[in-house]
């Protein structure tokens, strides 16, 4: 099955946005680690912006990058949000409140604790009432989200995939090791956009000896392994370098999602 990439977004250490990241990922040895810039959550009212948690900010930032690149109005675009762990800062605060003798849970922290909080803020920020889903497959959440987004194109013309995970706070850091924040977004369409474009052919199949493609550079491979959303890096690098290749993601069960990336000129 075929899909086209109309735009993408990224935010992580050393990769502040798709344009900068595109140049870094295309050039061998250009990546430098660093602190991720603060995410921008555009489109929220001051009240909503005050309540919006960090996870949702990352999601909004990369999602809006991808839509700007695609030139799409968000109103009609279904969204798939993939996160391995959701917002552990909020879990931590809520569980601390629940451990007190006199329990007083914050109503805002409670409603922000749902896994689909980022999806909710996306709708509020963009006004989109299109279909939206939030999912997790632990460390394979990016592949699960990509699979769901590609399948969504069976009936929808367009789909926006947003993947994000943030580091766990101290109390949970030993049990959920996500040392750095990372988010990525792909604007996918079943209709070929005008101009040069990346075309994806995908299939789900049994695992074989084809291992998950790591990043050639150790620093980028370390980043890929450090965050479930950074499992997108091999695909983002292929897009940046305009390098035809097959990227595969092994999956928690015994399957694999395989995506062949090809590049087509204008037509």
């Amino acid at each position: 099955m075929i899909a086209y990439i109309a735009g993408w977004g990224v935010l992580g250490p050393g990769l502040p946005d798709a344009e900068t990241a595109g140049a870094i990922l295309a050039a061998e040895g250009a990546y430098r680690d660093g602190v991720a810039r603060a995410p921008i959550a555009a489109g929220l009212s001051p009240n909503e912006a005050r309540r919006c948690p960090a996870t949702a900010r990352y999601a909004l930032d990369v999602g809006q990058q991808a839509l700007r690149a695609a030139g799409w109005d968000p109103g009609e675009v279904p969204t798939v949000l993939a996160s391995g762990s959701g917002d552990l800062e909020i879990s931590d605060k809520n569980c601390r409140s629940l451990a007190q003798a006199a329990i007083a849970l914050s109503p805002t922290l409670f409603h922000n604790s749902v896994h689909n909080a980022a999806g909710g803020y996306w709708g509020i920020a963009t006004g989109s009432r299109a279909a939206t889903i939030s999912l997790s497959a632990y460390d394979e959440s990016f592949a699960a989200g990509l699979l769901e987004a590609l399948m969504t194109l069976g009936t929808a013309r367009r789909c926006l995939l947003i993947a994000y995970d943030l580091p766990a706070p101290g109390a949970l850091a030993a049990v959920r090791k996500v040392p750095v924040p990372f988010a990525a977004a792909l604007a996918l369409t079943s209709e070929r956009p005008a101009g040069p474009v990346a075309r994806l052919s995908w299939r789900w199949g049994p695992q074989d000896l084809e291992a998950e493609a790591p990043m050639a550079e150790p620093a980028l491979e370390a980043l890929r392994a450090a965050n479930p959303a950074a499992r997108s890096l091999p695909l983002l690098q292929a897009l940046s370098a305009r390098q035809p290749r097959t990227v595969s993601w092994t999956y928690p069960a015994d399957g694999a999602l395989r995506v062949a990336v090809a590049f087509e000129e204008s037509r």
Partner: peptide, 19 residues
């Protein structure tokens, strides 16, 4: 993850969490 392991199903497995 628990359900797929308990059942022995090996197709794609994921959790939807939209409240």
């Amino acid at each position: 993850d628990f359900c797929r392991r308990y059942l022995g199903a090996k197709g794609p497995a994921l959790v939807v969490s939209t409240a």
